[in-house]
Nucleic acid binder design. Sequence first.
DNA 1: TTGTACGCGTTATCAT
DNA 2: ATGATAACGCGTACAA
Lengths: 345, 345
Amino acid sequence: MARTRSVPPPADIQGPHIRVTLKDVAQLAGVSAMTVSRVLNAPENLSAATVAKVRAAIESTGYVPNSAAKALRSSRSRLIAAVLPTLTGPIFLDTIGALTAGLARRGYQLMVGQSGYSSAGEDQLITDIISRRPDGIVLTGVVHTDEGRRRLLASGIPIVETWDLTPEPLDVLVGFSHEAVGREVSRFLVGRGRKKLALIGADDVRSKRRWSSFAKSARALGVGQPVARFVTAPAMLGDGRETLRALLAEHPDTDAIFCSSDALALGVLIEARAQGIDVPGRLAVVGFGDLNFSAQLDPALTTVRVDGPRIGELAAHCIVSRALGQPLETRIFDVGFTIVQRASA
Amino acid sequence: MARTRSVPPPADIQGPHIRVTLKDVAQLAGVSAMTVSRVLNAPENLSAATVAKVRAAIESTGYVPNSAAKALRSSRSRLIAAVLPTLTGPIFLDTIGALTAGLARRGYQLMVGQSGYSSAGEDQLITDIISRRPDGIVLTGVVHTDEGRRRLLASGIPIVETWDLTPEPLDVLVGFSHEAVGREVSRFLVGRGRKKLALIGADDVRSKRRWSSFAKSARALGVGQPVARFVTAPAMLGDGRETLRALLAEHPDTDAIFCSSDALALGVLIEARAQGIDVPGRLAVVGFGDLNFSAQLDPALTTVRVDGPRIGELAAHCIVSRALGQPLETRIFDVGFTIVQRASA
DNA sequence: TTGTACGCGTTATCAT
DNA sequence: ATGATAACGCGTACAA
């Protein structure tokens, strides 16, 4: 009995599919298929007796409706597609979790696609998504190629973009202004007497947008052009340590650092401690994301908090409204952000 | 022009659906619908001329096949459902990311469902999943109610369980032994001279399984029964700090702690430092998960590493094989784990 | 209150 | 090498 012998599926699994249909239930209950359908979708004007009969038949057969047939007939798939760069990385997680839950509560399911980093893969993904005829698409943290955006738009499927307040949304948008984040953090630091600002960021678009307004605002406030260092995404703790070392070597008078993620900020805090640099005394540190450990660090991390779950819940609301053709209160939902002031700055 | 006026969908979005069908393409190309279908699925014995004609028509119409119709006709949905307790929390993320990617490479899409913590919700989720007629289901870190397992099994849909090496798998299983983890960590600590072991864990089944073998092995090695503290999932850094404080208050002679996640371990390290406790001198700390920051901590965290992406990739392989009715090398894939020894123990 | 006919978009099967 | 026909499971529109 070699362990490596091939293993067939269990005998009780006949095939990938459920065989009970409306017709089977109807036959068992002694009614027409249509009546069974009505029991499921509009039981109000059926006799109590037939409803009971049919319910019993459904129960005993274990019938579950086939949503492919439903979708084909009604052109409503009750499926929403979510596109994000990658599932790895904690930033969008809360949003996707809340989105999934919000959709489930409204009777919709979520299909996920990772656009990844190749645009060939992205093209395939778009085709796969369109072929499913989802009732809506939620884009999260994705900047598509123009061609991709064109195809998505041409499909006629409602689209909600999230996490970004771009100047020209495709349709609905749920997010916050990264420009405002950069500006406010710069004001915050300068307001607390910092003079030599720096930024350590990941090389993604959103981080870059925060950087430009951070820099612009710093100049406007008269503390000169900040220094910036970018690391390739996903930015991790180790990058923070390393980058701080390099940055301080070149700019030892830096007195404030804005990190584009709390993970980077944690690395900065650890490296600062290793070098005996006083935080916030000599160096102020501000993170981004308010991850669950940030309040517990020593010193506790001052950071920018964004309500990820709220974005997901709002996105669920918006995309379902669009799917049903219902009007929306507004096109742009700005969920804002807050600077959570703790000990590190 | 009130800002709060309701906003209708853009005019160019007529409805949720794509209107081009096989028939339209066929008409444009001057062939039958069947021929178009063949161009897409079996172009080998068609004349080069018709293939070219049809390809052109597909291109110019932007035709994308409707997978609901495909699924209905062929009873293959090319959809895989994944069930996990919650998307929030970094543990299963790598697995789900690799699963999504592995499925996409094989021409399958992933639908996600969160079983959450209520069994009513779980029941609804199971119905929703079955109604989609997925070609397979991947269960991750979920222990279903008996009723739920029964319904899933009765659906006849292939199932792959992951992250767990349970004694009685439904069918295929990809994971590792949590018992072995508990045993090996205990041996590791005792082998390095530790005498008073403790464990801080989340109150989930897997963590509990690690605990029992951790305790059993410790007793067998002659260091007596370890102390345990459990916190409600999801276990976070703050829980680690707090729990260490309480634990040391009652058991000041504890000299080794096994944490059920690296997040908890980070909390323990921070609290230890705050209390001036030498790690690993007076207290050895071992984590679980090898999160991306763990190697960068000070002291670097000794932890148990599990290859999450490999579990996802293997799960993709297994579920697709089962979906296609192909034999599998074995029913149980043990991906194992390693204790990554760093400075903290 | 319940049933019949038809069509959603695709592919298996048989025919040419 | 290509076409005609039927069927997948369900819901709309009508009829009874």
